[in-house]
Amino acid sequence: MLHEITLTVNGEQRTVAVKSHHTLLKVLREQLGITSPKIGCENGECGACTVLMNGKAVNSCLVLAVEADGAVIETVENLSKEGELHPLQQAFVEHNAIQCGFCTPGMIMSAKGLLDRNPHPTVDEVKEALAGNLCRCTGYIRIVDAVMDVAKKGDA
């Protein structure tokens, strides 16, 4: 079954015909060419596909594309503007909070989802917000530091 849906992706309105059983993740990657959300488990366990949907962090593998009709979707591609990194991206670079980079887009979007609703979180709140994003490389410590750094500066 095909559905024509219209959604705002990274500030642009896009209309696409999607199949009922295709996830938002699949449609973003294969029909809209947005590949920063990664396929890590398709089970909502790893968070590599995290995007903001109407401002909230969600696993795009657990959303049917058709459910996203009318939604506003934001991915990490939208964060840097005119060559300037978003403060979260900048902090990830400065803290060496990146290794293989596969979890990074999802991790940054989870962090953004948190800071957008709670600009000055505690360390525990940061950890809670990132608990659904698995990283096998970094040991997480620098990721938490990077997010706390931005939270302290309060310019997210």
């Binding site: 991915t75 990194l85 670079v93 990146i98």
Partner: peptide
Amino acid sequence: VPRIDAYEKVTG
């Protein structure tokens, strides 16, 4: 020095 691959990794 900063990682040479950092920029492209944080921007997706």
